[in-house]
Structure formats: structure tokens, C-alpha cells
């Protein structure tokens, strides 16, 4: 007399991956075994949850990763078109070649890693500062100075509690930067949507990767404290070795 169906057999049965003889045997066992019936029912429920809830959310991200382009999220994350890229890069190389100006303290901890934000409004590209008032359709690019910390996770939180991961886009944990010193321009641009109110971007630098789920938990707790807390909080209680943040407002 055979024992219970293994997890492999249950998964293979659901996938129609068992040979015919094994399928017949497994089905015969299922008819007589309550425990295995329950296990199969539980597996089927998990599959249904995947099909109705998980797949619609994750398939666009997978497509985007496969193609090497970020997907459309709540904020539209675009690769800058050639003309706008020309304008943006005209600003950024100039910034790189000149002596770095001292940055406002709100961007960084003194002596620590830095976050600089450049906003494209129409054809104009300018560095944006803490509290900048921006409009839907404006695009942002980020330049960081990691100060020797190799990993970066850039997340944002808006007034409605929406969380986004900007670098690595849609990622699940910090990504290693191409270099741990000197300015690093992060790929892609963010095009601002029409949702009004504050949004704060946090750049989390670290020696080991941080997990998005851990950071999300902290961000949701911050969101629960309201827009004022979002405006005033410049550091997150997460195990990052360096942080910088930037607040923007959309009327």
C-alpha cells in the first residue's frame, strides 16, 4: 500500500506533469485519502490566488525586466527620449567636471553619502532642492555619491501612503552600484504623476543589501503618522550605513 502523495506528486499532478500510470495511481489514492485531498485543495487555492491576484501584478514587472526597461507603475518610469536626454546630460557632465559645491545639509549627513536631484520641466533642467514644488509631467533624475558604500536602495513615500522603489527599479533589495566613490548617475527618469501632496525620496546606502520588505514596513508606519511626519522625517529607522533624502511637493 502506497504512502501519502509527496509535495512533488501534488505539484506534478496540478501541472499535468506525471506520466499516465502515475497519474492514475495518484488519482486513485486521492479518492481514498482525506489528508491528500486536503493538501490538493490547499494547493489549488494557492494556484487560484496566484492566477487572480499575483500574476496580474507581477507579469508586467517580469516583462519589463526581461526587456531591460522598467514597467509603468503608479509613477511612470521612462528612459528619457533622445532630445530630453540631450538636455539633461548637458547639465550633468558640466556638474561633474566642475568643483563640487557644498550641498545643503538636508540632502545628506555631513561627510556621508549624497543624493542630488535634477528636475526637467519642459526643456529646462535644474537641480531641485528640498521642498521643491514640481508639476505633473516633470521628470526627475538622481545622482548619488556613495562615499564608499557599495549598495543602494532608493524608495519613495507619498502622502497617500504609496511606496515605490526607484533603484533598482521595482527591485526587492538594494543593488550594487557601478562604483562606490564619485558621482553615479542612476539610470532612467521618473515622470511625476498628478497625485498632489508631499513625496519624500529616501536614498539608503549600505555595506550589505537591504530588503525592500523591511524598508516598506518602516515607510508604512511613517505614512500612518500623516503628511506632516512625512515632511519632517529625513531618516528612516533602518539598518542603512548612510542615508539622504529629498522632499518634493505637488500642488
Amino acid at each position: 500500500m502506497r504512502g501519502h502523495l509527496s509535495q512533488w506528486e501534488l505539484d506534478a499532478l496540478a501541472l499535468r506533469a506525471l506520466p499516465p500510470e502515475a497519474t492514475t495511481e495518484a488519482e486513485a489514492h486521492l479518492e481514498a485519502c482525506t489528508r491528500c485531498q486536503q493538501a490538493r485543495a490547499s494547493l489549488q487555492a494557492t494556484h487560484r490566488h496566484f492566477e487572480t491576484d499575483v500574476l496580474p501584478r507581477t507579469l508586467p514587472r517580469l516583462r519589463a525586466r526581461r526587456e531591460g526597461t522598467p514597467p509603468r507603475p503608479r509613477w511612470v518610469w521612462l528612459l528619457a527620449p533622445a532630445a530630453a536626454l540631450g538636455v539633461a546630460l548637458a547639465v550633468l557632465p558640466h556638474w561633474r567636471s566642475s568643483s563640487p559645491e557644498p550641498l545643503p545639509p538636508e540632502y545628506s549627513i555631513k561627510g556621508g553619502p549624497l543624493l542630488r536631484v535634477f528636475a526637467r520641466q519642459g526643456e529646462r533642467v535644474e537641480e531641485a532642492h528640498e521642498g521643491a514644488v514640481l508639476s505633473p509631467g516633470d521628470a526627475l533624475r538622481f545622482v548619488v555619491e556613495p562615499a564608499g558604500l557599495p549598495y543602494l536602495l532608493v524608495v519613495s513615500l507619498d502622502g497617500s501612503g504609496g511606496v515605490s522603489v526607484y533603484f533598482p527599479y521595482g527591485g526587492v533589495r538594494s543593488e550594487r552600484l557601478s562604483q562606490a566613490a564619485g558621482p553615479v548617475e542612476l539610470p532612467g527618469s521618473i515622470v511625476l504623476d498628478a497625485a498632489p501632496g508631499p513625496e519624500r525620496v529616501f536614498a539608503l546606502f549600505s555595506r550589505v543589501p537591504l530588503e525592500r520588505t523591511d524598508v516598506e514596513e518602516v515607510l508604512r508606519a511613517l505614512a500612518a503618522r500623516g503628511p506632516r511626519a512625512l515632511r519632517e522625517t529625513r531618516r528612516l529607522p533602518v539598518p542603512a550605513d548612510g542615508q539622504a533624502s529629498f522632499l518634493l511637493e505637488k500642488p
Binding site: Q7, D11, A14, L15, L43, T46, H47, F50, E51, V54, L55, R57, T58, R61, L62, R65, V172, R212, T213
Partner: peptide
Amino acid sequence: RQYGPAIYARCQRLLGDGAAAEDATQ
């Protein structure tokens, strides 16, 4: 669509957490 349910079920069985299982599935 074909293999995603099996991957998700496998990851959820190991990780015991919906969000982590979803990330692991991808």
C-alpha cells in the same frame, strides 16, 4: 501562466509569507 502557479506554491511553502513568496516567485 503555465508554471507561475507551481513556482508560487513552492515559494510560499518554503517562505511561509505572501509578499516574500511573491518576490521569490519572480
